[in-house]
Simulated assay, not measured.
Amino acid sequence: MKKVAYPYVLWMVIFILVPLFLVVYFAFTTGDSRNYDTFRFSLDNFRRFLSPIYLEVMTRSLLLSVISTLICFLLGYPIAYIIASKRSAKTRNNMILLFVIPMWMNFLLRTYAWLTILGKNGIINSFLNFLGFESLELLYNNGSVILGMVYNFLPFMVLPIYSVLVKMDGKLIEAAEDLGASKGTIFRRVIFPLSLPGVMTGFTMVFTPAVSTFIISNLLGGNKTTLIGNVIEQQFIYTGDWHFGSTMSIILMGIILLVMAISNKSGGDLEGGRGALW
């Protein structure tokens, strides 16, 4: 190993491997989190997680994450396609820049902004009241949480798809046109299949932060929408049960790793099957 790599290895050991080891250690033990002498090996935390209340929270987290990921795909693919279809590289770069600029703002501030938009006295309800309509309950429900996820994570879907589309060989499209294929057929048989690796990457990049988020659900969901990230936060910060919090973190990590493995496997199969398109 080259000496220049030692600082990076040390960094990984201190800030990745050691914290991960501690999480695993706490997950498989029980006792007073402040007194290591009381720790003992146990699977009670995993059995506790199987209770209906925690399974319901996990199911809700997965459902909202999948819904927000699908919405990001339905919105993000056309956006990426439109940007990638521009002939001028300067135009493409400017459009990507405009799309990414909101990400330069603090994540918490971006989420807080929706409180002023969706609140009872927010912009939308103020406009409805001006028109003579009653205020709507736009905050503190599953819909507002999904909206916050889509707004914050949409760029994570657009950028991978755009990076694949913009690198696509234009000769393939020209060959399809020469063979008499319509625009719809070209998109269905050529463009979309070739862009699937970017789509799979986008799915992973959106689903991963969505399923583990707790700030969005705290601000936009209130006490009515509790996700697994909120429960983990409560166990570490308020309840002080680091063992159960670590157990839920391990389970959530396993789900995320499984999704990433499926995505990587699907992406590899798609890359290997490109030649079968022609």
Results as ranks from 00 to 15, higher is better:
59 T>D: 06
103 M>A: 13
193 P>Y: 05
196 L>F: 04
222 G>N: 14
178 D>V: 06
168 M>F: 05
220 L>T: 12
145 V>K: 00
65 S>F: 00
111 T>M: 04
256 I>S: 03
99 F>L: 13
81 Y>W: 11
97 L>N: 13
269 D>H: 00
253 M>A: 14
121 N>I: 01
40 R>L: 06
109 L>S: 09
119 G>S: 09
71 I>G: 05
247 T>D: 04
132 G>P: 10
96 I>V: 15
158 V>P: 07
216 I>T: 15
86 K>Y: 15
247 T>S: 15
167 K>M: 14
230 N>W: 00
131 L>T: 13
159 L>A: 07
76 G>V: 07
52 P>H: 00
237 I>Q: 02
195 S>F: 04
31 G>I: 08
150 V>R: 05
10 L>W: 14
145 V>G: 01
21 F>Y: 14
103 M>P: 10
183 K>I: 00
236 F>Q: 01
40 R>C: 06
199 V>R: 05
41 F>S: 06
71 I>T: 06
276 A>Q: 12
48 R>G: 11
85 S>E: 14
234 Q>Y: 02
48 R>I: 01
28 F>Q: 01
28 F>N: 04
251 I>L: 15
103 M>V: 14
260 M>A: 13
235 Q>L: 05
37 D>M: 12
98 L>H: 05
219 L>F: 10
219 L>S: 10
55 L>A: 12
92 R>H: 05
219 L>K: 05
55 L>T: 13
28 F>M: 07
117 I>H: 06
121 N>K: 09
218 N>W: 05
86 K>Q: 15
148 G>M: 02
94 N>V: 13
159 L>I: 14
92 R>K: 13
158 V>C: 06
102 P>W: 08
156 F>A: 03
25 Y>V: 04
47 R>Y: 08
170 G>V: 04
141 N>Q: 12
254 G>F: 12
123 I>S: 10
214 F>S: 07
246 S>F: 01
132 G>E: 08
170 G>N: 08
104 W>N: 06
164 V>W: 06
55 L>D: 11
219 L>G: 09
47 R>F: 11
128 L>N: 13
196 L>D: 10
124 I>P: 11
136 L>R: 14
112 Y>C: 07
260 M>R: 03
2 K>M: 08
97 L>G: 14
68 S>L: 03
270 L>A: 07
251 I>K: 12
80 A>F: 09
145 V>Q: 00
123 I>C: 07
6 Y>H: 10
181 A>K: 11
139 L>E: 12
41 F>K: 03
155 P>C: 10
273 G>S: 11
262 I>M: 13
90 K>H: 11
